[in-house]
């Protein structure tokens, strides 16, 4: 089987996918999907290309991802041990956590005062951006390919030339009284 990523092993991918799925959750890709918890309908960050974005050369995170994946699993083992959770063997620890535990752990890692938050917040930002910008691919391609996030948000597709124009953009009527001290140039006094 082809590895899922050129720079990460499959366990690392699964851990990072589980983190991305915690940030913007989605439906499982199949009955045996362990990374995606299935906590929300429709594709989430994972189906939107979170791993592609995290590993992109442009993003600059690629080099630290194995460390981040190991860190997430270590935190997950610690989290499980403290709460008496049993983690399934053979599954990376973070992915083995239930969705509520993943969510609570992610919130803890990114909370004010957590010394590691500078590691996890960017990873969360990339996860959100995978879903709501599809930044690992051209936006026109993402929309044409049915990108789960952009489609769910109702992001309007471009015109035939790949550019956006909205000729109808205004209610075209007076909707409020302007401030009585507005100057002739339209400025505050």
């Amino acid at each position: 089987m082809e590895p899922k990523s050129a720079i990460l092993d499959d366990r690392e991918v699964m851990t990072l996918e589980a983190f991305a799925d915690t940030i913007i959750p989605g439906e499982r890709r199949g009955p045996h999907d362990r990374a995606v918890a299935g906590a929300a309908a429709g594709g989430g960050a994972v189906a939107s290309g979170a791993i592609d974005l995290m590993t992109s050369e442009e993003g600059g995170l690629a080099g630290v991802l194995p460390t981040l994946a190991a860190g997430l699993d270590e935190h997950a083992r610690d989290w499980a041990a403290r709460r008496g959770r049993t983690l399934e063997d053979g599954v990376p620890a973070f992915a083995a956590l239930g969705f509520d535990d993943r969510t609570a752990l992610a919130a803890t890692l990114m909370a004010p005062g957590n010394p590691e938050r500078e590691l996890w917040v960017p990873l969360a930002m990339f996860s959100v951006m995978a879903w709501d910008t599809g930044a690992s691919q051209h936006t026109t391609d993402a929309l044409a390919g049915g990108h789960p996030g952009l489609i769910a948000m109702g992001f309007t597709p471009p015109g035939a030339d790949g550019l956006w124009r909205f000729p109808d953009f205004s209610y075209r009527k007076v909707l409020a009284t302007v401030h009585p001290h507005t100057t002739e140039s339209g400025d505050p006094a």
Binding site: I24, P25, T103, W131, M153
Partner: peptide, 18 residues
């Protein structure tokens, strides 16, 4: 009820982005 800036409820909010 859960996290406000990520997670399931955030995703629902994003669905109403327009």
């Amino acid at each position: 009820a859960g996290p406000t800036w990520f997670g399931t409820e955030k995703k629902e909010m994003l669905r109403r982005w327009q």
